[in-house]
Simulated scan of single mutants.
Amino acid sequence: MSTAFFDDLDDASRNEIINSCKGLRILSTLPYKKIKFWNDCVETCKTESTSFNRIFELLKSAGKYDVVMLTGGEKIDLLYAAIAFFAFWVKTPHIVVDAHWQKKSGFAYAIQKIIIKLSNRLVNQYHVHSVEEIAIYSALFHIPINKLTSIPWSTSLVGHDIKFLSALEKSDRALTGGSSFRDYEALFSAVCNLNINIDVGIKQGKLTDDLQKRWSACSNIHFLTRLSNAEYLKLMAGCKFFLMPIKSNLNRSTADQTILNAMFFGRVVIATDSIGSRIYIRHGVNGFLVSANSAEEWKSIIDHVLSLPSHQIQKISENASYDAKVLFNEPLRLYRTLKTAVEVAHQSKFLD
């Protein structure tokens, strides 16, 4: 199939997936209101993801559908899948999309395993982001390996004013941000008082308060705690480098979407070498990976990038933008997700 459009599928692929969905009833708990072909194929659960009413709505309505797609990041969806173990009347195959769970410790880990084990009765597939995660999730959460499928994540820019963002004047500043599984200590140690300003887009909270106190002496680190998503995207589109420090020893992907959005705008991304980042970044080709979360490693890579001639930076930027727009765009991810849903639905009908 062609992957020429970052905000839509080519006509042949769009028609193919819409035709393959005909006659099937597919329910999703996650809305994608701006992707037309998705909404031509999928009905979206109307109950909010934070409401326990979702459990009762799904238990009541799941049997009317040929396949149900749950959101792996929503605790309420996973709790539903576990409770549905006891709902003998629910036989519809389910898919957990965007399965990204970090192994907890002690009693919490035992609860994780119980919930996922109960979910296995109905869940036909778990979609992880990385091929690496297939073996990891099978070992950690005792998921049958044949139920694990990798579908890389994507940009999330459909519906945004891309022409406006792409035309923004470029600054000499670097940008980082977020709080989920971030490790700022090594990065800030490396960049403190370097001759480059670092903007940190992060929501106010205890982590932010602690970081601000600890790094207040570094005049080139600037905490921006009140940014909207649109304002953050403006900074991303206009920054010189995008930095993504990720905690070590994770068993899951993280920061995929943020990395890909920065690559979309042709930013040179420097990220910790982790399960998620290495799906998308080819070191020295379309970005850079920091092999260890140490100040020395971060400083070494940043110094290397700062020393590169402009034509080499331009080439890396072009590679990053191409990969994000063509290989990891949102319609392509949803196309892949729908393809698996159709296969699961037809397989279930065949077995019946």
Rank of each mutant, 00 (worst) to 15 (best):
F6I: 05
D10H: 12
I17A: 02
N19H: 06
S20M: 04
R25V: 00
T29N: 03
K34F: 02
I35S: 04
F37H: 09
W38M: 10
N39C: 11
F52Y: 10
F56V: 13
K60L: 08
D66R: 04
V68L: 06
M69I: 15
L78R: 15
A82M: 05
I83Y: 06
A84H: 05
H94R: 11
V96T: 07
K104W: 01
I111W: 06
S119I: 06
L122V: 03
V123P: 10
Y126T: 04
E132W: 01
E132L: 08
A135E: 15
H142M: 03
I143P: 07
L148P: 04
T149E: 11
I151M: 12
T155V: 11
T155G: 01
D161H: 13
S166A: 12
A174K: 06
L175C: 03
D183F: 05
E185C: 02
A186T: 11
L187P: 07
S189D: 15
A190M: 05
I198L: 14
S216T: 08
L224E: 00
E231K: 06
E231T: 01
L233C: 02
A237E: 10
F242C: 13
L243G: 07
M244I: 14
N249R: 11
N249D: 14
L250K: 08
R252V: 14
R252M: 14
Q257A: 05
T258K: 08
L260N: 03
N261P: 09
A262P: 04
A271W: 02
S277A: 15
I279R: 05
I279G: 01
H283Q: 10
N286M: 09
G287L: 02
A292Y: 09
S300R: 14
I301Y: 03
D303V: 10
H304A: 07
H304E: 12
L306D: 08
S307H: 07
P309T: 09
P309R: 09
S310P: 01
N319P: 04
S321H: 03
S321I: 14
Y322E: 11
A324L: 03
R333V: 09
L334E: 02
L334P: 07
Y335L: 15
R336E: 09
L338T: 08
F350N: 12
L351Q: 12
